[in-house]
Write a protein that binds this DNA or RNA. Structure first.
Length: 125
DNA sequence: AGCCTGACTTTGT
DNA sequence: GACAAAGCCAGGC
């Protein structure tokens, strides 16, 4: 692995207009329906595993991203819907997950580890 | 240019 | 097992 960073975009002449957020969006949008992932997993894939916060922070701007980012499929390491409060309505995230056949109990995803979608694994195939 | 904040995670008490 | 603190990075002011 790279010593400095594992970010695949690091060693590329990417346009300056490219933001860290867009990397996150790209990954989140690739999350299969009915699956969920964690901020840390995405962060790890992007190379910023030491800063899972940045993923969450990126999601903050995701509200303004086009197309819309399925942020409801992103939960914390415990499968808890920590970001639900940031949605249009606190119940929206839970509702969206249920529509994808994901069971949510007490604001957390049931069988989270089963539904867990790791970009570092799925996208590296 | 510098300080603050934040949708996380891990470790320690 | 619950609570507290630290670390991390990038964007906003």
């Amino acid at each position: 692995m790279n010593k400095k960073t594992t970010n695949p975009r690091e060693n590329s002449t990417a346009p300056k207009t490219y933001s860290f957020f867009e990397d996150v969006y790209g990954v989140v949008r690739q999350i299969p329906k009915g699956r969920v992932t964690s901020y840390g997993a995405i962060a790890s894939y992007l190379g910023t595993k030491l800063s899972a916060r940045m993923v969450g922070w990126a999601m903050n701007a995701a509200h303004n991203a086009r197309p819309k980012v399925p942020a409801h499929r992103v939960v914390n390491r415990n499968g808890l819907l920590t970001g639900k409060a940031h949605f249009a309505t606190p119940s929206l995230m839970e509702e969206l997950l249920k529509k994808e056949k994901i069971t949510v109990t007490a604001d957390k995803v049931t069988d989270f580890k089963q539904l867990f979608w790791d970009p570092a694994v799925e996208l590296s195939l």
